[in-house]
């Protein structure tokens, strides 16, 4: 991609919305929110209690039976994936030389982002902490099978 540098003092063309500006603002706004969400996530999952050793199906089932953590994780999913994908897009834009390669990579990044956002959102909303027929010892303590 050849770089076109505009003449000094030439007005910004207002033909379309300034997407790059919104992207730039999004990185900062989502970044601030993600600091709270991700450090909260790390603190409750890795620091409190038995940390990583305590994480299993029952742990996740216990958390996601509370709408508070459902919303928390859903926000984290959407904000982090879009933040990360937009960051990767910036890197691709910086280092690719051929336009076709750049477009393919950017398109792939947003496709992966969309698939994971849809998958994650469906999982958070359709998750059953007490699936029928599952081994009782693997389930959270509030399940009737216990």
């Amino acid at each position: 991609m050849s770089i076109v540098i505009e003449q000094p003092r030439s007005p910004r063309s207002r033909k379309s919305a300034n997407w790059e500006k919104y992207g730039w603002l999004y990185m900062r706004a989502s970044g601030v929110v993600l600091i709270f969400l991700i450090f909260g996530h790390l603190f409750t999952n890795l620091f409190l209690g038995e940390g990583i050793k305590a994480i299993d199906f029952a742990f996740v089932g216990g958390k996601w039976s509370d709408p508070f953590w459902q919303v928390w994780d859903l926000l984290m999913l959407w904000l982090a994936l879009i933040h990360g994908t937009n960051g990767m897009r910036t890197i691709v834009n910086d280092y690719t030389e051929r336009e076709a390669v750049r477009k393919t990579l950017v398109w792939s990044l947003w496709s992966i982002c969309a698939v994971l956002i849809v998958l994650g959102t469906l999982v958070v909303f359709t998750f059953d902490p007490c699936p029928a027929g599952a081994a009782a010892e693997l389930l959270p303590s509030f399940c009737p099978a216990k």
Partner: peptide, 10 residues
């Protein structure tokens, strides 16, 4: 990996 909670506890 987290999406696997939807598949089965195992």
């Amino acid at each position: 990996d987290t999406a696997l909670v939807r598949l089965s506890p195992e």
